[in-house]
Design a protein around this nucleic acid. Structure first.
Lengths: 135, 135
DNA sequence: CTAAATCTGTACTATTATAGTTCTATTTGA
DNA sequence: TCAAATAGAACTATAATAGTACAGATTTAG
């Protein structure tokens, strides 16, 4: 249905919650509580975001996650890509040789353009802005 | 992965192939041959597009489908909506009361804005333009 | 008036992606 | 040393999508 996955949605909710207090360290449990999202998913997603360098971590007691950069410099596109991989409406704009119908296809470059425009939309909004009521 | 379904992709390929000769009547079998897509899916998708009024049909021998309107007036957004339902990145912009975490959510109106922008991108390109090599 | 080509509609199965869980290991602070 | 926390991987369950099948209705050609 032209949608992001629930994981991306959660990831944006989580980082955008963290952006309220960017220097703080938040534990998974705490973030699950604040956002109301299921703890195991929260833990899983935070690990992924750390793997992409969006979050910094501190292990052990009093440890947790915090945003690795300024919240206003982290875009929605970046979060989605971290969790889902490259943003691509169709296979043909993801890489080479992924589509069986490539020979008959005359739409490839058009898809690339549509895709780039959508990427621009998602890059233009930061997780900090996702917190506000007016975008 | 922020993608349209294969059905939408097929639907755009099909209508965009038909747009080459907008007044012609094409049978399912013929379109499957031309595009190289699997016949049963082609037949299924064309029925759906007819149900949404995007295609007109003629039954019986020498029957088939043709575009109900000018190809330049049929947008990619319209095709996707016909096949997948409303374009919505998240549940919260699809209707009311669909999200369990609505109380904690401060992003709803931001999502609505992102969503509208993406809808605009997909509305701005016609199936006729999807045929060209330059968008 | 019959046969073949074509759409109509629905129901079904298979496959894949996503969501969500669980468990063990490692690190750190008190 | 113990408890709180992340790290990492493997696993199961669920839901969405892809794809198939079939009986029915309509139209044209002969």
């Amino acid at each position: 249905m032209l949608r992001i996955t629930r994981q991306s949605d959660y990831a944006i909710a989580l980082t955008s919650a963290m952006s309220r207090n960017a220097d703080r360290v938040w534990s998974s449990a705490e973030l699950a509580r604040i956002t109301g999202l299921p703890y195991p998913m929260v833990a899983k997603i935070l690990k992924i975001l750390h793997g992409s360098g969006i979050l910094a971590t501190k292990r052990g007691v009093k440890g947790g996650y915090r945003l690795a950069r300024e919240p206003s410099s982290i875009s929605v596109a970046e979060i989605i890509e971290s969790v889902e991989g490259p943003i691509a409406l169709t296979d043909c704009v993801r890489g080479r040789g992924l589509c069986d119908y490539e020979k008959e296809c005359v739409s490839r470059s058009s898809w690339a353009i549509v895709n780039r425009k959508i990427y621009e939309v998602l890059s233009s909004i930061s997780i900090a802005e996702m917190r506000s009521e007016g975008g």
